[in-house]
Write a protein that binds this DNA or RNA. Structure first.
Length: 907
RNA sequence: GGGCGAUUAGCUCAGUGGUUAGAGCGCUCGCCUCACACGCGAGAGGUCAAAGGUUCAAGUCCUUUAUCGCCCACCA
């Protein structure tokens, strides 16, 4: 039977089919009652703000690799998918969409707006799910979750009420970060800081009694309209007599007191500070200490309000300009100096944040933080990379109460009802009929919603059925591992740990792996708005999903950000193509195998393949023993690497095994065996090739699922075999381990490479078979070459290789030496180019001499001999002996060649 | 202001105190060899940022410095 397979791998031809195949029958559905050790992982739910970007691609690939790997190793595996409603971000997206259509979302009303967002959620969520399916994520789609679903909303209310009843959630009037564009409060974490060049305006505040004035320095003159005091340091002699006196606030007719407070830094500015309790965190605290009134001078959208008198209606920055002009006109502006300051920006829209005093809901964090730190200290949760642990502790130690209310319409409505009669608050799981304080029915639910991270913090248990003790919760909680980007350690990871411990008594995951961010070539965080983002869909189409997966993870060393480049993607695609073509090699030769009377069906059962490597004439051929030994080594590395989330190591070692060992050496070596006239020999070769290739596919499958699934189905498989994803991952068998084969084949590789080098150096006809000579003092080495003469001659393209004991003459041909052997192609028509050979040898000589000198020095050192481990000394001694042999050979060759050439070219 | 990280080949980066520091890409030379030119073979290319220290032994541990990043922080 002849098979047709395209010459080049075309991922577009096959990916869609398998993506569909995997989800069709819920192939990756988890079963809480299934046997085996558990591996569970919940997705960091992507925001429904658009589609997946390349960072998600990395994150999801890592999760999927580990999921597939564990599944193939017999774990009871759950990869739970889902999405986040992403309160402020999603609301912004929809608000903007409406604005683009000329609609102010506020005119729609809350209910209609929510309806529009749900429509958008369906669109964006649908896109995300489609992308996840497209990239082959092996999730259990029957367990998909959404943070704002009715089920999860119930969990949110449960948690809110419990925290309220425990006194951990409270409502207070406090100074918070306000975004005048998003029109909501923000937590400290949602504010990013940016250093900007600004000014320090020195303003004269005249004394109320007309005697002189105090100069205050401020970076924000517009807030002076809300000043309710000026503060000086109590021990500042310059201002001592002013304390308790009144000043007249310029541009208004208000009188404000001079107060004394140790918060003032005498060295800064003039040593006198204007106090604006409603618009500055420090001043807010000072205001509380001194019982000062708060005067909010702004509106929600950042304009000056009625309290700003003549400036009312002006934007805060326009007001700043006007105020400075007016002060100047009145001669109250002493001077303006340059001043660098860090301004707070809204994380989402980059608007300058306005500190404002307002009524908000808060969550006390300290006690939860302490328990979370203790758990991490006890290593109930491990963190990779480990240095993130310190960051975590640092943040947790300095944690402040969390503003959890947001003035948005998209989110979990706070389950609190305000009583119109007694003004008290009723907090309840279900909408209450009457006020729990006075019994009045005049209840109105709080307008605010919860910070989106509040529901995300519950994700590992809310998605598994908590507060019920469901089978899912019992089996899969705590989850095994959390994989996420390091930039949400505080937003999300820390809060999950705190909430998880608080509500379930257990950590939410056993381990956290914080992976890199994917950056642009210039090192910036990728951003769609800046046009620097890479579109994973386009890249998948261009290079193939498997290549993308390979590319991203091969660079994913923990702790460093990664940069995706065209070059790397091309390299990854080439690898996929290489695998494809290795398979093609098998297929185009199958006829020959079957012509010999063998049947493909004989290779279909895993039991048959698992017995590879098969022996011929009583022995496993060296090449097969070697390949399976290399496979075992690779599997060791892969296991170790995946267990410690060192994806790049695992992926690179798989790459090396497949390309270098399997393709470059194994396939090249066994080619003639496959068509050997000796049918028994040929059959053994075929069985071993099949066994090795099929194992290699399984080895590769978690990283490159599409390609391996496609090829695996083209190999003979037992009846009822559904998918490579459900097969067993190869296990490094004890019988595969074979250091002798590795050592022996390394010798053959060395000899073949040496002959090829000589051939290149002598510029010999690359197709012409040549006669060469081989010598070694070591009988075992000579035997090894003799045993494998056919292969060596063939790969080195030799007509014959004469094996003699001892050494070869160092002149009269192209030659390579090691301490163990010499190999030489005698001159026939061509000679060595001395202008190349002599400098090469001299350089080698120099390197060896230096190396020998340093080793001699070290071995001559008594302290070294007495302190270094025996093994190190032994190694050093034998290496030194080898180097000396090599040096002697090089010296001899140099003498010969120098003599021959008369005048050696200058080195 | 505090903290963390980085600095290794032309580029992007691995490197877990112990032989001659690796990979991919790029570069040079030679090959369309019947799986693969998305390929094959052979090469060149590195005082591991600088200085000091610990150690028998340092790219790896410590200190200082320089440069570049990132995070955190209420100095008006």
């Amino acid at each position: 039977m002849a098979r047709e397979i395209a010459k080049a791998y075309d991922p577009q031809q096959i990916e869609g089919r398998w993506a569909e195949f995997w989800i069709k029958d819920n192939m990756f559905r988890a079963d809480a009652h299934a046997p085996g050790p558990v591996f569970s992982i919940v997705i960091p739910p992507p925001n429904v703000t658009g589609s997946l970007h390349i960072g998600h691609m990395l994150n999801h690939t890592e999760i999927d690799i580990l999921t597939r790997w564990h599944r193939m190793r017999g774990f009871n595996t759950l990869y739970l998918p889902g999405m986040d409603h992403a309160g402020i971000s999603t609301q912004r997206v929809v608000v903007k969409q409406l604005a683009d259509k000329g609609i102010d979302y506020r005119t729609l009303g809350r209910e209609e707006f929510e309806k529009r967002v749900w429509e958008w959620k369906a669109e964006s969520g649908g896109k995300i799910i489609a992308q996840m399916k497209q990239i082959g994520e092996s999730c259990d789609w029957t367990r998909e979750q959404f943070t704002l679903s009715p089920e999860l909303s119930r969990v949110v209310r449960e948690v809110f009420v419990r925290l309220y009843e425990e006194g951990l959630i409270y409502r207070a009037h406090y100074l918070i970060n306000w975004c005048p564009t998003c029109l909501t409060a923000l937590s400290d974490l949602e504010v990013t800081h940016e250093e900007r060049q600004g000014h320090l305006w020195h303003i004269k505040y005249p004394a109320a009694d007309g005697g002189g004035f105090v100069v205050v320095a401020t970076t924000r003159p517009e807030t002076m309209l809300g000043d309710t005091a000026v503060a000086v340091h109590p021990e500042d002699e310059r201002y001592a007599q002013l304390i308790g006196k009144k000043l007249r606030l310029p541009l208004t007719n208000r009188e404000i007191p001079v107060i004394a407070d140790t918060m003032v830094d005498r060295e800064f500015g003039t040593g006198a500070v204007k106090i604006t309790p409603a618009h500055d965190p420090n001043d807010f605290e000072a205001g509380r200490r001194h019982n000062l009134p708060e005067i909010d001078v702004m509106t929600d959208d950042g304009k000056m309000n009625g309290n700003a008198g003549a400036y009312a209606g002006l934007d805060r920055f326009a007001a700043r300009k006007k105020i400075v002009e007016d002060l100047q006109a009145q001669g109250l502006l002493e001077k303006i100096t340059d001043h660098k300051l860090s301004v707070g920006l809204c994380e989402r829209c980059k608007t300058v944040v306005e500190p404002r005093a307002s009524n908000q809901w808060f969550c006390k964090m300290k006690s939860m933080a302490e328990k979370a730190m203790a758990a991490v200290e006890r290593n109930e949760i491990t963190m990779v990379p480990e240095n993130r642990r310190e960051e975590f502790f640092h943040w947790m130690r300095n944690i402040r109460d969390w503003v959890i209310s947001r003035q948005l319409w998209w989110g979990h409505r706070i389950p609190a009802w305000h009583c119109g009669s007694c003004k008290e608050v009723t907090v309840a799981r279900e909408t209450p009929a009457k006020c729990s304080h006075c019994g009045s029915a005049a209840l109105k639910q709080d307008d605010d919603v919860l910070d989106t991270w509040f529901s995300s913090a519950l994700w590992p248990f809310s998605t598994l059925g908590w507060p019920e003790e469901t089978p899912d919760f019992k089996t899969y909680y705590p989850t095994s591992l959390l994989i996420t980007a390091y930039d949400i350690l505080f937003f999300w990871v820390s809060r999950m740990i705190m909430m998880g411990i608080h509500f379930t008594g257990k950590v939410p995951f056993r381990a956290v792996y914080l992976h890199s961010l994917v950056r642009t070539a210039s090192g910036e965080k990728m951003s769609k708005s800046k046009g620097t983002g890479l579109d994973p869909v386009a890249l998948n189409q261009q290079y193939g999903t498997d290549a993308m997966r390979f590319c991203l993870t091969s660079m994913a060393a923990p702790g460093t950000d990664i940069v995706v480049s065209e070059d790397r993607l091309l390299g990854a695609r080439a690898f996929a193509n290489k695998i494809w073509n290795a398979a093609r090699f098998l297929f185009v030769n199958l006829d020959k195998f079957e012509e010999g009377g063998a049947k493909l069906e004989d290779l279909a059962s895993p039991e048959v393949r698992e017995q590879a490597p098969y022996a011929f004439a009583g022995d496993v051929p060296l090449i097969d023993g070697w390949l399976f030994a290399r496979l075992a080594d690779t599997l060791d590395v892969v296991k170790d690497a995946f267990e410690t989330q060192r994806f790049h190591e695992a992926v690179q070692s798989i790459y090396q095994f497949f390309w270098n060992d399997f393709c470059d050496w194994y396939i090249e070596w066994i080619k003639p065996e496959l068509t050997s006239a000796d049918r028994t020999r040929a059959t053994v070769a075929w069985k071993n090739l099949f066994g090795a290739f099929e194992a290699a596919l399984r080895l590769l499958h978690p990283v490159m699922p599409f390609l391996t699934e496609e090829l695996w189905h083209q190999l003979p498989q037992r009846a009822g075999a559904r998918s490579i994803a459900l097969e067993k991952y190869p296990e490094a068998r004890a019988t595969w381990r074979n250091t002798a084969a590795i050592k022996e084949f390394a010798l053959l590789q060395e000899v073949i490479t040496a002959v090829r080098a000589i051939r290149a150096e002598m510029k010999l006809d690359p197709k012409k078979k040549l006669a060469a000579q081989f010598s070694s003092e070591d009988a075992a080495t000579r035997d090894a070459i003799a045993r494998n003469l056919d292969g060596v001659q063939r790969l080195a393209l030799l007509s014959e290789l004469q094996i003699t004991p001892g050494k070869l003459p160092q002149a009269g041909g192209g030659l390579r030496s090691t301490s163990l052997f010499d190999v030489r192609i005698p001159y026939v028509e061509t000679e060595i180019d001395l202008a190349v050979e002599l400098p090469r040898l001299k350089k080698e000589l120099e390197r060896l001499s230096k190396d020998i000198a340093s080793k001699e020095r070290q071995l001559g050192d008594e302290t070294f001999r007495s302190r270094a481990p025996e093994k190190i000394i032994k190694n050093l001694e034998s290496t030194l002996a080898e180097r000396r042999v090599e040096l002697a050979k090089i010296e001899e060759r140099l003498r010969e060649l120098d003599g021959k050439s008369g005048a050696a070219p200058a080195a």
